[in-house]
Design a protein around this nucleic acid. Structure first.
Length: 112
DNA sequence: CTACTGACTGATC
DNA sequence: TGATCAGCCAGTA
């Protein structure tokens, strides 16, 4: 089942246009699994390095790179940021992404 | 079956 | 802005 789930997740992630980002919750909902945000992260964590999936375009609801607790590869979070910057995504001084500008589905933090 | 954990999220303080 | 807490769900011990 995880295979089916993962396939759905990956398919949704692949739909994210270049230079845009989406949140875990959005990907989950888009794949048809509301409230599975955590599992989206798990699915991406299980993703092989050579996968053709723009996993770097998936960030948390705060517009930040999700901090991995177990960072077996130190600097992986920085790598994700580099990739996004390479696509044109701009990070604020706080290291946050302006979802109003780069959010795929135009996620609004709150006030518009 | 209970307890703990994790690339999450939203509300509170 | 940042730290905590409480839901959330599946996998694992």
């Amino acid at each position: 089942m995880d295979t089916k789930f993962n396939q759905r997740i990956y398919a949704a992630v692949k739909k994210i246009p270049r230079g845009k980002v989406a949140t875990y919750g959005e990907i989950a909902a888009l794949a048809g699994f509301p409230r599975y945000a955590r599992h989206v992260g798990m699915a991406l964590a299980a993703l092989p390095q050579g996968a053709r999936v723009p996993w770097q375009r998936v960030v948390n609801a705060q517009g930040r790179i999700s901090p991995r607790i177990r960072n077996w590869q130190s600097g992986s979070d920085d790598y994700q940021r580099i990739l996004l910057e390479g696509e044109g995504v701009v990070f604020s001084i706080d290291g946050k992404i302006d979802l109003k500008r780069f959010g795929w589905l135009r996620e609004m933090p709150k006030t518009q």
